[in-house]
Every structure is written in structure tokens, then in C-alpha cells.
Design a protein around this nucleic acid. Structure first.
Lengths: 413, 413
DNA sequence: GTCATTTTTTTCGACACCCGCAATAAATAA
DNA sequence: TTATTTATTGCGGGTGTCGAAAAAAATGAC
């Protein structure tokens, strides 16, 4: 509210808007862009001429056979894949993966690697991350100069400025400033993103119709995480990545959570909690990591016959339902995407979850609630990182403010 | 994201910004405005010349003795009180109040009235509201043409577009479209605002230093309500006024709440809940309305000696603490203002509240949490309504978009 | 008391941006 | 081949902001 609009900001913003219109719509014509943005044809024409001249956009002449209409055919505008590239790094439990993505959003190279994140010393963990990025950047097929942004995603809590990992379940290490480390090492601007936030960004990117203004992505895995989009924008906390849905209190003084506190939603619905309950262990038992295969076996057993396994999923559903109910009391109901290995067992979870929600204020607008499931979180996290990085390039590099272009990217001016 | 910036929007926005700078700063000089907005002196000069010419701003020459500096003295700019007026209506339990406020924010007239909201039929309730507004508008001292906006505040749930009361604890009636009724009756644009949201707006208006980006206003009264400001803007739900903190679940299946569900925070911390607990009534007992005087007596007794009264406040504090803890897990800790009659008993509530928060994820950044108390909610609600209405006039009437000025307000054009 | 200095505000010329309208381009239908 | 339709571009005009210089209004020094 406190800063005015300068004359030169105008072009910057409208440039950014044309780019974003092209990214969203695929191959829109100038006329379509003019219609969606409300700007005049002349303006769109001028801006797109600039962008084509700068090799950011290309004209994709012969696209579809739209020949059904009379009149001059529309010329589709597309993102030039070679305008820039971004690199994504996803670090999860015992697994590290990297991908290089062109400006049009296509994966052009990738590499994956297993590693023992839980026991690696600090320098080794950082070293492996740097090494895999370095290998990809040295790829002779890749023009290194075009890599304009690195986005790293990690399971755990990051700071609110997307610079550092503060805490993670995949390693006992804390406070690793990955973004700064990557920037210093490779001279490319980088960010450190939270896994659940990237899941939410990816859902919006994949299906902007379904996931538009308000929705929730919940990770059901070792821990319980959440990415929250409100009014079309990702919600992040003021101190940290925010949205620690898993640590809302389900039962004051209740079951022991991995975070050391008691009664969190996660202490009933995290993998370890379901396992603990199914094995009839005490609610005070120390949380242990349970493999995905074990969880799938557990779900199979729960489906087979009634017993402690089924009861464990029931209790998880109850905790999630009351948690969602409280959340919905605050932000109003919204579609929910359940992601992660326990999302594959959502059939076991859902009945108790629905029953619990119905007992809360969130149950009022239950027609606004829908559940999607997606068992595999890693592709979503990577897509989210790619979306983040590309959006940054769109806005900050190809539509920069007064301060001259940062100099990254081969096709820039 | 989808709409472009036109060339004429520029002036509109910068006009709005100059007005808002003057409203915030009191009597800033053109130079100060240029500094805070980042626009050039020439631009500020041109815009303020327009605004003065249109009688929206005035030059307040001889203000303070700033004669300590050399050079041409600054000329303060001030809002012209006669540029417009707004009217606020606050409807609360058994009480209706109206105020007329000039463009500079000063109350120029007010009227208050007792009425039995709990038992009034629909037509009577609406009729009394219309009548009191009509009386104020007929005041010969008031230029009716200058009343540019009506903002009505009510205890209860309103719709997300600020048009109607959906539900309220002060009346069994539901779904009264007050905003539309007022507009139709008086031909003045109107809104229907939620009480707790207005409390939050008022806090920001009163002390923008302390209540700036993120903070929470909680009403501790018959019910428990919340107004939430995130990243500097009021948070509202997608369906309703949002932020039903009082109906987050504290204990699944627990005490009976006024909303008919069980275990809500309000069922432990609302006036009726504290009363019920202090009187050793069952948690299933029907909620009853307790007068403010009775609540003050109860608090006095609790301060006097340990007993069921003190225990009741302790349990209220526990519920509020766990609720805040869950809230803070989602949005990160922020300053809290406790408002309402039970805020005067916050000394009895706070120990258990702090203890509970410490057991939650919200306890991590406890240094970010602070508590203010304000026992009287009505003045805050009125101020919030006034702020809302004046901001509307600033932005929509005195800095309108392409569509010509709406014609309200005598000094326009 | 006059003049230099300092600070604020206004004025003026230049430039950039967007818009509307007319012109041009490229297709189909007659 | 020509008329029609639709998309895109070119041009002139209007408006908004900026920077620099001028004007205004005070204080301080001699």
C-alpha cells in the first residue's frame, strides 16, 4: 500500500502479464491475450513484438487445423524453450534427484541417487547435493549460461524467505542454508522450498481449473504436512514455511508425537502413529520410521479383516477429520488433495474422517469439500519446484524492474 | 493476475495512494508523501493540486511550530472534513448505536438505543435499524448528500461479500440482508461487517505500528470470535466472514457448545461455559446468556479464593491456549488482542493459557506472542466500521476507476 | 536591512506508454 | 477474381511521470 506506481513499472507488469498468459494458455494468439488481459490489441502487439525480438517468445505458425473459421488465422505465441532453463533439486528420505527443465517446462535431463540421509554428516550431505548439481550443469548438451534459477525442495521446515532448511525428518541436521550454498557455489539464484508447499503449487500448475483459489494439499507419510493456497496464493508463515497442520492439537496431552509434544494430529495419523497403534504399542512409544512397503502391507491387512490394523486407520481418520474440521472453522472448507503413501490407504481412512468432520463446524459446507488422492509425492514436489523457478524467471528476469537485468540467461538483451 | 494495467489506472492508483498517505500520516507535507511513496515531487505536487482543487484535501498552513529548520516551511496536507461523511451502525445484544463521522474521521453525531434483540420479530428489528439511521440522516446539521457510505457491524456470522447477516447470537433470526436493505432504503452504498473483523480493522487503524502485518483480535464474550489480519490484510473466509476460532475443536466429543456441536473452544471459554463450569453444572447443560455484571462478579469471586470459579477460568484458559496453539501451528505466532468482558478477567485466564500454549507447536516462537486486553468491544467495532467506510470513500469515490464517479458526495467534481 | 543559504514546491520540457482508428495482411466464401 | 471476415500492425494523440530548473518562503550572517 505504501509504494507508488512509476511509469516504467507499467510496461514491466504488462510484459510479465503477457508472459504469464502465454505460460498458462499454451499457445494463445495476440487477440486472445488482449481479451484476457483487457489491454488493447496495439499494446499486446507491441509487447509481444519485443518479447519475440528478445527470443523469449516464438510464433508457432502452423499449429492446429483451426481452419474452420473465416478470416486471417490466429498466430499462436509460445514460450521459446531455449530462452532459459531451470534446475530442480529434490531431497527426500534416502533419495536425491535433480532435473533440468527448459523454459517451456519440458524436462531435458535428470539424475537420481540413493543416499543415507539419516546418518550422513553435514559436509557429506551438502557435498552430495552440490556434486549432483555440478554433474548436471557440466552436461555438454546443456548451455550452462542459460540456467537461470535453481529451486530445491525438501521434506521439512524451511524459513519464510525460502533460503534455508531449518529442520527435517530426513536428517538429524538442522539449519542448512541450501539456497545460499547453491548460489555461492554456482552463481545461480536459488531457493529452498518446503515439500508440501511445492505440492500445492504443482497441483495449481497441473490443473488450474480444479485447484484455483482455495485448496489444501496434505502429505500423509512419515509425518503430516500441509500446503495451503488461499485466494490463489500460497500461504506461508511469517517465521517458517508455515501450515504445520500435523502439529495442530487433536487431543491435549494425548499420544507422543515425533516433535516431542503430545496429542498432535501427526501422533495419530503419521505412518509411525498408525504402525504403533496397529501393533498395539503404547501411545508413549518412541516414533520409528516405517518403510513404504511395510505401510502397504499394513493397509492390505486392514482391508482383509477387522482388527487392530483397521482400528489404527480409523483413529488416523478421526484425528485428520477433527484437524480438518478445526482448520475449516478457520479458513472455510476447500478441496483437499491427499498425497503420499497413506493416501493409497485413504479408503481405510475416509469413513472415520468424514464422520469426524461432520461433528465440527467444518461440516457445515461439506459440499465444498472433496478429496483427491495421489500416492506419489515426489513428482509433485519436483513439478512444484519447476513451476516456482520458471515463474521467477518469467517475472524477475524477463520482466525486470528498474534495476538492470541480473545478467543470467543467454538470450537476455 | 489476469488483468493488465491501463495507462489511466496509473493516476487512479497514485491518487488513492496520496489520499491514504494523508489519512495515515495526519498532516504530511508533499515532500514527506513523495518520500514514503517513492514518486517524484512533481507527481505528488500535481496530484495534490488536483485533490485540493476538488476539495478533498486542504492545506493546513500554520500547524506546529516547526520553525526550527531553515528553508521554506513544509505545508501540511490534511483531509477536508467536509469532503464526505460516513455512517456506522452497530447492532449488538440489546443495543443499537449509530454514528455519523466526517471525512477526517471525527464523530459529528451519534445516537444509541436499547432494544430487546433476542425477542424482536424480524420486521421490528429491521424497522428499528432503519428508523435510527433515518433520524440521523434527517438531522438538519447534516448535509445528507455528503453521506457516502454506511457500514453496519453485527455480532455474528456475515457472508463473505459483506452483504448480509447469516447468523447471530443476538437474535434467533437468520439471513437478514442488511446491506441491501440499507442501500434500497437510503440509496447509499452499504456493507454488513462482522464484529470481530471490525475489531481487527480498528486495532490496525488505532495503532498501525503495533498491529501491522500479522495479528489476531479475539472476542471473549458470550461467544468466542476472532478477527485475523495476515500480511497486512483482513482475512475472510470464502463462504462467510471466516475465522471461527471459537469453533475449533478443543476436545473431540467434549462439552456442549452453543452451536450444537461438542468440544468447541467456545464450549469451555465462552461466558456461558465459564459460568456453567463455575456453577458445577454438567458440560451437557444448555448454554444460557450471562450478563456482564454477573461475569464481573464471578471474576471477583475467582480472584478472592481458590474454588470452582477459579477452576472455571483455568479451564477456559486451557481451551484458549490449546486453540491458539493449533492456530499458531498454522499461521505462526502473532500478537493477540483480547477484547470483551472476559478480557477483563484475563489475569485469571492467562496462566493456564500460557501453560497450554507451551505444550503446542505454537510455543516455539513464544517471543512473538504478546497479549493486550481491551474490555470494551463496542467502541472498537464502531471504529472499525468507520475505518472501513472511510477507506471505501478514499478508494472508490475519490479515486474511482474508469466508470464515472457514482454521484454521491457533494464535493465531487 | 540586505543578501546568501536552505528547503519546499511548482513549472516546464522530454520521454514512455497505452489507446483508438485506420491500414494492412491473410485466410474463406461467393 | 472479388467480397468478406478476422488478425495484426502502424500512426497520431493524449496522458502521466520524471528530471532539472525556477520560484517561493523561510532563516542566518553581515
Amino acid at each position: 500500500m505504501s509504494v507508488g506506481i512509476r511509469h516504467d513499472d507499467l510496461r514491466r507488469r504488462n510484459r510479465a502479464m503477457v508472459i504469464s498468459a502465454v505460460r498458462r494458455a499454451g499457445q494463445p494468439s495476440r487477440t486472445e491475450i488482449a481479451a484476457t488481459t483487457g489491454l488493447s490489441h496495439s499494446t499486446i502487439s507491441a509487447i509481444s513484438a519485443d518479447l519475440i525480438q528478445e527470443d523469449i517468445l516464438t510464433e508457432s505458425k502452423a499449429s492446429e487445423p483451426t481452419a474452420l473459421k473465416r478470416g486471417r488465422p490466429q498466430i499462436g505465441l509460445a514460450l521459446n524453450p531455449e530462452a532459459a532453463a531451470v534446475l530442480t533439486v529434490v531431497l527426500s528420505l534416502n533419495f536425491l534427484s535433480v532435473a533440468v527443465i527448459d523454459y517451456a517446462g519440458q524436462v531435458v535431463a535428470e539424475e537420481q541417487q540413493r543416499l543415507d540421509t539419516l546418518v550422513m554428516p553435514r559436509d557429506d550431505l551438502i557435498g552430495e547435493c552440490m556434486a549432483i548439481v555440478r554433474r548436471r550443469l557440466r552436461d555438454p548438451d546443456l548451455d550452462v549460461g542459460s540456467v537461470a534459477r535453481i529451486a530445491m525442495g525438501i521434506q521439512g521446515i524451511t524459513d519464510s524467505h525460502s533460503r534455508a532448511m531449518l529442520w527435517s525428518p530426513i536428517t538429524p541436521l538442522t539449519d542448512i542454508p541450501f539456497a545460499d550454498l547453491l548460489e555461492r557455489e554456482f552463481g545461480i539464484p536459488a531457493t529452498m522450498e518446503n515439500d508440501c508447499n511445492m505440492m500445492a503449487v504443482a497441483l495449481q500448475w497441473r490443473d488450474p481449473e480444479r485447484y484455483r483459489d482455495d485448496f489444501i494439499a496434505i502429505l500423509l507419510s512419515h509425518g503430516i504436512g500441509m500446503g495451503l493456497v488461499l485466494k490463489g496464493t500460497l500461504f506461508t508463515g511469517t517465521h517458517s514455511s508455515g501450515g504445520e497442520f500435523g502439529h495442530m492439537i487433536h487431543r491435549p496431552g494425548g499420544a507422543l508425537c515425533r516433535c516431542g509434544r503430545r496429542g498432535c494430529v501427526e501422533a495419530y495419523a503419521g505412518n509411525y502413529a498408525i504402525w504403533r497403534s496397529a501393533m498395539k504399542m503404547s501411545e508413549d512409544a518412541e516414533p520409528v520410521d516405517v518403510g513404504d512397503a511395510d505401510m502397504r502391507a499394513l493397509a492390505a491387512k486392514a482391508r482383509e479383516k477387522d482388527g487392530p490394523e483397521r482400528e489404527a486407520y480409523r483413529r488416523a481418520g478421526e484425528a485428520l477429520g477433527f484437524g480438518l474440521g478445526s482448520l475449516f472453522a478457520l479458513i472455510d472448507p476447500a478441496p483437499v488433495a491427499m498425497v503420499g503413501v497413506s493416501a493409497a490407504a485413504f479408503d481405510l481412512i475416509e469413513p472415520a474422517l468424514q464422520e469426524a468432520i461432520a461433528q465440527t463446524a467444518g461440516g457445515q459446507h461439506s459440499e465444498s469439500i472433496s478429496f483427491d488422492t495421489e500416492p506419489n509425492e515426489l513428482p509433485l514436489i519436483r513439478e512444484g519446484c519447476a513451476a516456482r523457478a520458471l515463474t521467477f524467471v518469467d517475472q524477475e528476469i524477463f520482466a525486470p524492474g528498474v534495476q538492470a537485468r541480473a545478467g543470467a540467461g543467454k538470450n537476455v538483451a
